[in-house]
Structures are given as structure tokens and as C-alpha cells.
């Protein structure tokens, strides 16, 4: 564990807490893409298949349970909670994400570290996470102004993988045989997808104005 990875995990945890806070405090999920939440639930379920077979550390296990539990709870809330579900922007959140799921799974069948059930699903989860934010970014552009908590949620979600990139650089420089090309390339693509969001987020912060993404 290094400071970059810890910062990344904490930033990821903060993004989840901010989203839970938004939904719990405002009893509303307006501006949140259910599709992105469902994609993230798939990402965690596919990535943490080794949850019970490979014990790495208490921290690792606890964080996996937190990410799986929170993503499933948010999907449940947005679908079935009688108050929250009314504020879901159903007609704006129309990204056909099964194309993404199919493409990522096909890529994982071709490109993986080892051809085993667990490894293919692990590579699938890495590719899927890289594009999982797309429905959310599309929804932000369509829904015009973005409330603060939603903007902060997306910001922290994008920042966490940027910390992971620093972690991979650090591990590459300090550990002799460290190569994680699948994670690194996907992580770069994932962070690049947030580039324009980060730009408009910085502008809104600098001008102390509402976050506005151009339609």
C-alpha cells in the first residue's frame, strides 16, 4: 500500500459517501444516472469474485464489501424506494449501456492476464469501469445545471482513478516486476473521459458559479 493508492481509495470512498448523502439528505436522485450506478454494481461484482477466496487484508475485504454494498443499495434505492425513485430522470437517462457491457466483455475474452473465469471477469470489470461514467456524463449534459453534491460526487469519482495512476507509476518505479498494463491503460482512458468535466468543474469553482456543462 502506498500513499497514492490510499488517497485513491479514500477519494473513492468519499465519492460514495457524497452520493449516499445526496440521496439520503435530499431524498432525491435527480441528476444521478441509474445506468452508471448499475454499471458500477456490475464492475464491483465482477471484480471482487475473489472476495471469499483470496484474503489479502482486512482493509481490502472491508472496502470491497463497502463498495459492493453501497452500489447495490444505491441501485435498489433509485429503483424501488418510493420517494427517491420519483425523482429519477428516467427520460434523460437513456444511454444504451448493454453495448458497452457487450464490448467490454468481448474485449476481456480477448485481452486478459490469464484465461480463467476469475481473470476474464476481472479484466471485464476494469474495462467496464473505464466507460461506466459515460451515462452519468451524458445525463449531466442533458440536465443542464448540476447540484453541488452531484458535481462533487462525479469529481471525486474521477479523481480517485487519477490517484491510482500515480500509484501505478510509483509501484512501477519501486517494484521490480510490476506491470499492470490492463489497469494502467484502462485507468488512463477512464480519467481522460473526465477531462472536460474537470475543466468545467474547475471553471465553476474559480468563478464561484453553478456548474454548467455545455449541451
Amino acid at each position: 500500500m502506498n500513499i497514492f493508492r490510499l488517497a485513491g481509495d479514500m477519494t473513492h470512498l468519499i465519492s460514495v459517501l457524497v452520493l449516499l448523502l445526496k440521496i439520503y439528505a435530499t431524498k432525491s436522485c435527480s441528476g444521478i444516472s441509474l445506468k452508471t450506478q448499475e454499471l458500477y454494481a456490475m464492475v464491483f461484482l465482477a471484480r471482487y469474485l475473489d472476495l471469499f477466496s483470496d484474503f489479502i487484508s482486512l482493509y481490502n475485504t472491508v472496502m470491497k464489501l463497502v463498495f459492493i454494498g453501497s452500489s447495490l443499495a444505491i441501485v435498489w434505492c433509485m429503483r424501488y424506494h418510493r420517494v427517491v425513485r420519483r425523482s429519477y430522470d428516467r427520460e434523460l437517462d437513456t444511454f444504451r449501456y448493454w453495448i458497452l457491457v457487450g464490448a467490454c466483455f468481448t474485449l476481456a475474452l480477448v485481452l486478459h492476464e490469464k484465461f480463467s473465469f476469475q481473470e476474464v471477469f476481472w479484466a471485464f470489470s476494469i474495462y467496464l469501469e473505464a466507460v461506466a461514467i459515460l451515462p452519468q456524463l451524458v445525463l449531466l449534459q442533458r440536465s443542464g445545471n448540476v447540484d453541488n453534491l452531484t458535481g462533487q460526487y462525479v469529481f471525486f469519482l474521477g479523481a480517485y482513478r487519477a490517484f491510482y495512476i500515480l500509484n501505478w507509476i510509483y509501484r512501477y518505479l519501486t517494484e521490480p516486476r510490476f506491470t499492470r498494463w490492463i489497469s494502467c491503460v484502462s485507468g488512463l482512458v477512464q480519467t481522460a473521459l473526465y477531462a472536460d468535466f474537470f475543466y468545467y468543474y474547475f471553471i465553476s469553482w474559480k468563478n464561484n458559479a453553478k456548474l454548467q456543462l455545455p449541451a
Partner: peptide
């Protein structure tokens, strides 16, 4: 452990 893919990251 070496045959296992060491996915020690989240």
C-alpha cells in the same frame, strides 16, 4: 501465491 493473479488493489 505466484500462480494466483495478485490483484491486491481495489
Amino acid at each position: 501465491k505466484d500462480h494466483e493473479s495478485d490483484h491486491d488493489e481495489l
